[in-house]
């Protein structure tokens, strides 16, 4: 069974009455144990892809199918997608003022367990686990008491996404430019987090603008997205080539 299987996906976005196609016949398959990277210039549709698989409202699927663990995602509610094990690390995480990080993580973990007919993790065990993951990401204990993304620096927001991923243990993590805006130390911390997450049973889709992340998290496949479709796929060397020659080389 593949984790994610996308075939012939075309998607429109509508904003202020104007409809425009963003994805045009996209095809992608991710199997357990694989790390895929999607690269592409700004505006090529990377975030759109991430949002569509997470069923964010506002995107209309024109054609094609998206299967997650053999389930058709096209019509699912966003929380159902999450409950079946797909995690999206946001490019621009939003704030939820007054709701502490720890509280939010617990609500999230409890909801996921409930949807899977599992008992909630005891608060003590849960907090212990979260604290230890937080310290592995260089996040101090105070960080867990602060409101979700409230007044976080860019780097803290991104590390918080990784924290959530590690705590919630999804089957597939889609990380949308989690590397953008990080200094080299933070980039290493985030990469260590992703590498710690990798298992033979799960998968990662790294969406990135730069190849430098791929020095630390080595992908099995690299795809180039342009104008809403994948125009080239290869292994890590494709990323290096792209970096030296630029996207124009492919067009």
């Amino acid at each position: 069974m593949s984790l994610l299987s996308i075939d012939n996906l075309s998607v429109n976005v509508e904003s202020s009455g104007e409809v425009r196609p963003v994805l045009n016949g996209l095809k992608l398959q991710i199997n357990p144990g694989e790390v895929h990277a999607i690269m592409g210039p700004n505006g090529s549709g990377k975030s759109t892809l991430a949002h569509v698989v997470a069923r964010k409202p506002g995107y209309s699927i024109q054609s094609g199918v998206v299967l997650f663990k053999d389930q058709l995602l096209n019509e699912m509610e966003p929380e159902e997608v999450a409950q079946s094990g797909l995690f999206l690390g946001f490019q621009y995480p939003v704030e939820i003022p007054g709701v502490s990080n720890m509280e939010f993580l617990k609500a999230s973990s409890d909801s996921l367990n409930k949807a899977r007919s599992k008992e909630p993790e005891s608060t003590t065990d849960f907090m212990k686990r979260v604290r230890s993951i937080a310290s592995s990401l260089d996040l101090d204990q105070d960080f867990l008491k602060r409101g979700v993304n409230e007044g976080f620096s860019g780097g803290e927001k991104k590390r918080n996404e990784i924290l959530q991923m590690l705590v919630l243990k999804p089957d597939l993590a889609v990380l949308d430019e989690t590397d953008s805006g990080l200094d080299i130390d933070a980039l290493k911390t985030v990469s260590n987090g992703v590498n710690a997450f990798r298992e033979s049973s799960n998968g990662v889709l790294l969406i990135t603008h730069y190849q430098r992340l791929l020095d630390y998290v080595v992908p099995d496949f690299v795809h180039v997205l342009s104008e809403g479709r994948i125009i080239q796929s290869g292994d890590k060397s494709l990323a290096l080539e792209l970096e030296s020659k630029g996207y124009a080389w492919l067009q």
Binding site: A54, P97, V99, F104
Partner: peptide, 30 residues
């Protein structure tokens, strides 16, 4: 309560109804 906050909660497995309640409770914390 923005669609983006709601979506963040839902993406973390929390249904929309519970999400609104969490967001409102956070707002009232003080």
């Amino acid at each position: 309560v923005s669609e983006d906050q709601l979506f963040l909660c839902q993406q973390r497995g929390i249904d929309a109804e519970k999400a609104v309640s969490i967001i409102v409770n956070g707002f009232c914390k003080d």
